[in-house]
Simulated scan of single mutants.
Amino acid sequence: MKSKKILAMTLALGLVAGTAGAMSRPVTLADQGSFFAGGKVVTAPGVYKDDEPTNFAGETLHGDAAYVFWQAPVKAKKNALVFLHGYGQSGKTWETTPDGRDGFQNIFLAKGYKTFIVDEPRRGRAGNSTVPAELKAQPQDQLWYDNFRIGQWPDYYDNVAVPRDAESRAQFFYQMTPDTGKFDVQVVADAMTAVMEKAGPGVLVTHSAGGGPGWLTAAHSDKVKGIIALEPGTFPFPKGEVPEVEATTSPFPAPGMKVSDEEFQRLLKIPMVVYFGDNIITGSEPDKHWGLDNWRVRLNLARKWEQVMKKHGGDVQVVYLPDIGIKGNTHFLMADLNNQEVADTMEKWLKDKGLSK
């Protein structure tokens, strides 16, 4: 074990020396590794014959598992942080930022947390799907740019906290990655429940479309001790209390997510906080720019969910970051120029809830 620790420390120091801006200070690792969790096995009809390997009869396919890369600093805190990305993304979301600064993976390692970085099923390094998909080389950078509230292409919002050089913009676009099978909330939630069983007790940190399966994971795994959700796309409501879908100019409506009474009761037992960034139009009036209106209706839905959860005794909080003086954030709070400030806010919440020990 001693030699492993020495090697781990050498790797951490190598990051400091070899990558400008990445790993702002050395972190000594006790261990690291990777694994797959969840998934299923399907078998093709027929009988496998080892002298006919390409007819695939009777052969098996392992797919729909999540891929996880984890690191443990020396004297890690009891509760780990498990990071689940959003739509069009992979675990890269949480790693080094497009302009080469520390991402949440490094920031929270330095704070003493064991980190688990997930690629959800049918995405990134977990690309083996049990259902087919047609991958299209679809130009859509500008769609994401507008929807992620960086600006209205090719311009930036005046206050937006992002690097504005061409290379950083290119690095951001390159991290987009396609689904290798249809996105299925239940498939992701099942895999994430298995991830939590392997990771042990921890706080689940979700982003965007990772929010939906994140709620279900917490409802089915007692290993989830809290949730930090960064701009989730939907929210869980009990039967009979799902709000009507609000009209929007966005092509992506924001429906609530109905969960069973048992699932809802489990969610009431853990603390949860939701963070939204800047440049979100508030109120009930639709905005003509769909990229802004898409987040207006989601913030409105979040506040309705907060009221329902609190009515039932839940420990939840929806935070609009400009209200607490953190300004300029895009949809990618973990990579913006003020991501350290966002991380500090998250850690304060962890401490307040007794989850940082």
Rank of each mutant, 00 (worst) to 15 (best):
K198E: 14
S90I: 01
K182F: 11
T10D: 12
G14F: 07
H62S: 12
F104R: 05
E306C: 02
K223L: 12
V42T: 11
V245Q: 01
A30P: 08
G291D: 01
D315V: 08
A161Y: 08
I107H: 00
K223V: 13
F69L: 12
D99N: 11
P163E: 06
Q307Y: 09
T93E: 04
R123A: 11
E244F: 04
M23I: 11
S208R: 00
M9T: 14
A126S: 03
G91N: 11
A22K: 14
F36L: 08
G46P: 09
L135N: 11
Y113D: 03
A199Q: 00
T330M: 01
Q32Y: 14
N106V: 12
L216P: 03
A37I: 08
V319Q: 02
A161S: 14
K114M: 07
F173R: 05
G202A: 04
Q105C: 14
P238L: 05
A65E: 13
V259S: 06
L61I: 09
Q317H: 00
S90A: 09
F83R: 03
S34P: 06
L321M: 06
T330K: 00
T43L: 15
N106S: 15
V162Y: 08
P53Q: 06
V187F: 09
G18Q: 10
A126Q: 04
D179Q: 14
N159S: 13
F235R: 03
K357G: 15
E52I: 13
G314L: 02
D119Q: 02
L230K: 02
R125S: 13
P238M: 07
A219V: 02
D336A: 01
H312I: 06
G38F: 13
K77F: 10
D352C: 09
F69K: 13
W349S: 02
L355D: 03
K114D: 05
A209V: 09
I281K: 00
I117W: 02
N300Y: 03
K225Y: 10
M176K: 11
A126G: 01
E262I: 08
F69I: 11
P121N: 01
T249R: 10
K5A: 14
L84A: 10
G354E: 05
D190M: 05
P236S: 06
K136D: 14
P121K: 00
N79Y: 09
L109Q: 10
V118I: 15
N339I: 01
P178Y: 06
G39R: 08
K78D: 13
A22Y: 15
G151K: 04
V41A: 10
W290D: 05
A209W: 06
L350Y: 00
L15V: 13
R101M: 08
E95V: 11
V185H: 09
P53G: 05
L292I: 03
G291N: 01
